[in-house]
């Protein structure tokens, strides 16, 4: 049973490491949907770890309970050229530290200069900000210049359309907020737009849970939800400017959601409608 339990423990742990590393580099040589496959594998490793620890606990307990007065019982110093346990642990810890040092700059600004091996730079992309999905990939390149573009707000029996001109005429707000991607990079920027709460109020829709929908082609993240509290937030914006300039199509022009305390994948781009329930 112990040997059988090692298969999910070793295989699952390597699965998490290998697919996770490939995922952040946007390489998907498998058929499963990565977040779902990763989630199930993580629980499998939890179960396999429980079995392994329970089976090994008596051995560990017994080894720790033995009192030794003889120094030879604690092992002998390694000969020249041999690797000691301490040496192995130091090598592993040093390697982990070096990897962190060489990649953390994709999210920690003061380590940007040592970012030599990360899949991202937090300052590279349209308007100096990375993107995961471009307008071309999402099929929304023409949305920003489409004269027929409307933002539709629906809820509680009310439906109202807004043109971009109408949205630009509403009180504008600016907030410094990060795009924090679950893949490990993050970058802050200054976003300008209209408050979601103001738009709902202008539409005559009672506050509630808001589903923000995108014009993007397919994908599981073509919409996201805002809780009633989040939708009422002062810095919960539908942005049309980034760092004082018109939003680039790759960042979601003509309108994108930007709000605090949300992973980047839920900062919905190319917003075309909001539904309140």
């Amino acid at each position: 049973m112990e040997r059988l339990g090692l298969l999910p423990l070793v295989g699952g742990s390597l699965f998490l490491l290998v697919t996770g590393v490939a995922n952040i580099a946007h390489w998907y040589p498998w058929r499963f949907f990565f977040p779902v496959g990763h989630w199930w594998a993580a629980w499998m490793v939890v179960g396999a770890s429980m079995v392994h620890v329970a089976l090994k606990a008596p051995i560990v307990r017994r080894a720790l309970s033995i009192r030794t007065d003889d120094e030879s019982d604690t092992g002998s110093a390694p000969a020249a050229g041999e690797l000691s346990r301490r040496g192995l642990l130091l090598t592993v810890a040093g390697t982990a530290g070096l990897l962190t040092f060489l990649t953390a700059g994709q999210t920690v600004p003061w380590l940007r200069r040592t970012n030599l091996l990360a899949p991202r730079r937090s300052d590279v992309g349209p308007q100096g900000l990375p993107v995961n999905r471009t307008a071309a990939a999402a099929g929304t390149t023409r949305l920003a210049s489409d004269p027929s573009y409307r933002l539709t707000v629906q809820g509680h029996g009310v439906s109202t359309d807004f043109t971009l001109e109408q949205l630009h005429a509403m009180p504008r707000h600016t907030a410094e907020l990060p795009i924090a991607c679950v893949e490990g990079w993050s970058a802050s920027a200054r976003w300008t737009g209209v408050r979601v709460a103001d738009v709902l109020h202008a539409a005559g829709v009672e506050p509630g849970r808001v589903t923000v929908k995108s014009a993007q082609r397919g994908g599981l993240y073509s919409s996201s939800d805002l809780s009633p509290e989040a939708a009422e937030g002062d810095t919960c914006l539908l942005a049309y400017q980034l760092d004082g300039a018109a939003l680039h199509p790759d960042h979601g022009a003509p309108l994108r959601l930007i709000a605090p305390n949300r992973p980047g994948v839920l900062q919905t781009k190319w917003v075309t409608s909001m539904e309140v329930t």
Binding site: A25, H26, P119, R120, V124, G125, T134, D250
Partner: peptide, 17 residues
């Protein structure tokens, strides 16, 4: 995976820069 650039895309230079 980063070195080999398997996930590089011509339309998105912010990936693997």
């Amino acid at each position: 995976p980063t070195v080999a650039r398997f996930g590089a895309r011509s339309d998105n230079p912010s990936i693997l820069p």
